[in-house]
Nucleic acid binder design. Structure first.
Lengths: 207, 207
DNA sequence: ATATTATATGAGTAATTGCTCGTATTTGAG
DNA sequence: CTCAAATACGAGCAATTACTCATATAATAT
């Protein structure tokens, strides 16, 4: 009977000081990931930069994997919440209004901590990167699908599933790369405008 | 004077048997990366699966980094060549013909070894992933820019640099994700058609 | 004050890592 | 055949890794 490698915390902090310890661990991990990269994020180093003993770290996290998982869930939720809160009001608005807002939201979400987002997305070994990260994308894909279905009379995509995929991937990929590789694109609103056009002409096409 | 960590081979193979050894090393590394992931690719393990001694490995590669770098350059060249050879004939053809071919080429390029492409793109620590990988994208971006300039009278993008970026990123990202996450999309030609529409309506827009 | 629980600690361990170096074998030129 | 150059080898080292455990301190409850 192979014991599953647990991801959940070893024990929950009950006093204030331990809450601070847990926070320090997550903060230190974030700093290391963004400043030094994933391969420098050893548990010993995390404890050191958090200013705690290595033993304390293992009081609350059963293994290294669970620390990164906690960080992913946190970051993933922040992103999904930004997009969801911006789009939830716009369900009955026409697509010309929704798409630009979606793009603005995606850029804002990526601007929280671009480097952390990059490391979490690109540097974590597959085996550790559970579904947690893609969970945000799933939630957003659900929103998009619901929206497209609600406006079915105006948009009528050839293939709903494929359109949701193209929409989601394009927005995510373009905003992600732009924030990291072309911060100059983001300063004015031209980039938003271009990406909006890309998607709007596609969705509104008639044939 | 800090000695730079070299990437180039320690010595060049001069006899046939050493050429075989070098090939075995690269092949074993590819197999490990695709089957077991980057974090299982230790130099000892590579030598073992290549059927050679660890000492032999270090005859031709100064360090682990250089093995991955060699693999990246190889893979990167294969991809760039596929796309370039397909597009070089089409410089004077209209965009309605070129875009679908570009997408077909991109899908074909990603189909060579999708899992290797994924690991090389998503699992290698930033510090090791030199520019070599993005070199293929740079070459392709150059082609796209030249094409857009040649058809400047028909397409007149608002911002050439931004349009090249959007074009390149969208094609790469959609083909990459589709091959890995939606192989069912690839079997028929509907996906090609959809992505073509996405880009064509954008490029041909008049306003 | 005492007992119980929660929290903190870091020396130590077993495993793995990238890599060296002395030595052995094979090859091809003269 | 001779011999220098090319190639192969792998035991072993220093460094790093994830993680344990015995012990100590602090907070809380009674």
């Amino acid at each position: 009977m192979p014991r599953k490698r647990s991801i959940s915390p070893r024990k929950l902090p009950k006093q204030e000081r331990s809450r601070i310890t847990v926070e320090a661990i997550l903060e230190a991990t974030t700093r290391i990931l963004t400043e030094e990269g994933y391969d420098k994020a050893s548990t010993n180093h995390i404890a050191e930069r958090a200013g705690i003993g290595i033993g304390s770290l293992y009081q609350y996290f059963p293994n290294k994997e669970s620390i990164v998982a906690a960080l992913m869930e946190q970051h993933s939720n922040e992103i999904a919440e930004i997009v969801e809160s911006k789009l939830s009001h716009l369900f009955d608005r026409p697509i010309e209004m929704v798409i630009p807002e979606l793009i603005k939201a995606a850029i804002a979400a990526h601007a929280i901590n671009p480097r952390l987002h990059q490391v979490l997305n690109e540097e974590i070994p597959q085996s550790e990167r559970l579904q947690q990260m893609q969970q945000a994308e799933k939630r957003i894909a659900g929103l998009l699908r619901a929206y497209l279905e609600r406006w079915n009379d105006d948009i009528h995509p050839r293939n709903l599933e494929m359109t949701v995929f193209i929409l989601g991937r394009t927005v995510e990929s373009l905003c992600h790369s732009a924030v990291l590789e072309h911060p100059d694109f983001i300063t004015n609103s031209q980039f938003e405008r271009e990406v909006s056009d890309l998607l709007l002409f596609y969705l509104k096409r008639t044939n």
